[in-house]
């Protein structure tokens, strides 16, 4: 049962990442990141089914709420306010993005490989995918132009970090809590304030225009 769920979770993470990579439509991206957030919120429960306790439940619920619901909604609103629904001409096109994603997956596999020895067989793919998600988020930030897409990339990366923490450092729930805090901050500050201001000041949120400060 748990294994099936776990496999499902892993698969969802993978698929959402791939979707994030090859779409240029913002609503789709927000949806993907929401699904990913939801799944990753569930992840600790699945991973530690046998020793589940109250605090874990609470954390998981908060995470699901934030990552799966609140942040995507905030993003959606900013998107509508800014009036953008497409990532036009990203630096890296969808196909190439996918290829790079494949490479990143291989990289995460390579880096996480030594973990295999110390993890149960069925759990191994969790850190691999977590790391992949981190890289994927970074890649999204790097390869997309709109501020809002960058935030999505950042959220993806956060998801990865959280998943990573959930899979590895379950003995130290403090870390997991930190992840929550971080997400709240990012959600509130970056999105709520910064995008709002950028929108007001520049009339669009294309970060290409945010490059007057150089050298």
């Amino acid at each position: 049962m748990e294994h099936t769920i776990l496999n499902l979770v892993v698969l969802t993470i993978l698929l959402s990442n791939i979707r994030l990579l090859n779409t240029s439509r913002l609503p789709v991206m927000i949806l993907s990141v929401a699904i990913q957030g939801f799944v990753i919120g569930v992840l600790p429960l699945v991973l530690h089914w046998e020793r589940i306790n109250l605090s874990l439940w609470i954390i998981a619920l908060i995470m699901i709420a934030i990552k799966g619901v609140i942040l995507p909604r905030l993003l959606h609103r900013s998107m509508q306010e800014a009036g953008v629904i497409r990532e036009v001409e990203p630096f890296v096109g969808p196909t190439v993005s996918l290829l790079i994603g494949l490479f990143l997956l291989a990289l995460s596999y390579w880096i996480t490989f030594p973990l295999r020895a110390s993890l149960p067989e069925e759990l191994f793919f969790v850190p691999v995918l977590a790391l992949f998600t981190v890289f994927n988020g970074l890649f999204l930030i790097v390869s997309r132009k709109k501020a809002i897409t960058q935030v999505i990339g950042y959220l993806t990366m956060e998801n990865g970090v959280y998943a990573f923490g959930a899979s590895l450092a379950v003995d130290h729930p403090f870390l997991v809590e930190l992840g929550v805090l971080l997400d709240v901050w990012v959600g509130v500050f970056i999105m709520g304030i910064a995008i709002y201001h950028i929108n007001r000041e520049f009339d669009h949120i294309d970060t290409d225009k945010l490059s007057t400060l150089k050298h």
Binding site: V134, V161, G179, L182, I190, A194, H197, L210, T212, L213
Partner: peptide, 23 residues
């Protein structure tokens, strides 16, 4: 604003990596 945006985004990415480091 541009400076703030860069500051926030870059430092947040950095800090996320540091969190991974802690993990």
């Amino acid at each position: 604003l541009e400076a703030t945006w860069k500051y926030l985004l870059i430092c947040s990415v950095g800090i996320a990596l540091a969190l991974m480091g802690n993990i």
